[in-house]
């Protein structure tokens, strides 16, 4: 089942085309990796999907519904969770409270004046933390977490509204190699069980080829390949882009 359908997405900045006519789709329960060299337009593309940037042209449909023109918070309400390249969490709150706030928002109780936030959806929050392996850190302040733990907290927050689609911008950036593998295995496990569609960008090709069901490759704003990992690996244009510059698969 197609969760996200992108067609003819385009964006220019001051006459320079950052993304030109990109189309692709993400299926439920699949992990789609968006890769490409620096400056290929990955971040621009990403920000148009989550509502931070308005595309010049093109359409983005979530479960068949057009979401171009919606704000990030509205897109989230339609079932899109996201994690950031540089983690964004609520530093003055505990790990559990971070998740509780997302749950409070999900249940539309942000204007609540009476109950205590820390008493709301406590069990759900703890269940979410348990799924990302953070249950034992629930009482710690988010501000003091190690980077890998912050990434896992973000994942728990992103899962709070039982999303249909997860957008993950460089989910393993800044992590040690072993942590990367663990985190992506965790994500892969969750999305397969729950049938969530995932679109992620990633520099680490080991992560990409180990976990992605499909890979799309951007170069200078254009989509140059779309297929299963083996196809993409064998694609001469992709090899040209990555090998032609003297780089190997690895840190692109």
């Amino acid at each position: 089942m197609t969760v996200l359908q992108v067609e003819g997405l385009a964006k220019s900045f001051g006459g320079v085309a950052a993304v030109q006519g990109v189309s692709f789709a993400v299926e439920a329960g699949h992990l789609l990796a968006l890769i490409g060299p620096n400056g290929a337009g990955k971040t621009t593309c990403f920000n148009m999907l989550n509502g931070q940037l308005a595309p010049d042209r093109g359409s983005v449909r979530l479960d068949g519904r057009e979401i171009v023109g919606l704000k990030p918070r509205q897109i989230w309400r339609l079932g899109v969770g996201r994690t950031f390249q540089i983690t964004a969490t609520f530093g003055s709150m505990t790990v559990r409270e971070n998740v509780q706030v997302a749950l409070i928002s999900h249940h539309r109780r942000t204007l609540g004046l009476w109950p205590r936030a820390r008493d709301l959806y406590r069990a759900e929050a703890e269940a979410l933390l348990a799924r990302v392996g953070m249950a034992d850190q629930a009482e710690r302040a988010a501000a003091v977490l190690a980077y890998g733990d912050l990434k896992r907290l973000e994942l728990a927050v992103a899962l709070a509204n039982t999303p249909r689609l997860l957008l993950m911008d460089e989910p393993t950036a800044g992590m040690a190699p072993r942590e990367r593998v663990e985190l992506m295995a965790l994500v892969a496990g969750i999305v397969r069980v729950e049938g969530i569609a995932v679109l992620f960008t990633e520099h680490d090709m080991d992560v990409v080829f180990a976990h992605a069901d499909r890979i799309i490759v951007l170069n200078r704003g254009e989509l140059i390949a779309d297929g299963v990992p083996a196809q993409v690996r064998a694609d001469p244009r992709v090899q040209q882009v990555y090998l032609g510059g003297g780089t190997t698969f690895g840190h692109g």
Partner: peptide, 26 residues
């Protein structure tokens, strides 16, 4: 009120407007 959902959401918006926006908070 600081501890109530409203207060918590405000604190969330102060700590990280980006994250707050990404979890549906205006």
């Amino acid at each position: 009120l600081v501890f109530a959902p409203f207060g918590a959401v405000l604190r969330a918006g102060r700590d990280s407007p980006l994250r707050a926006d990404a979890i549906g908070i205006d």
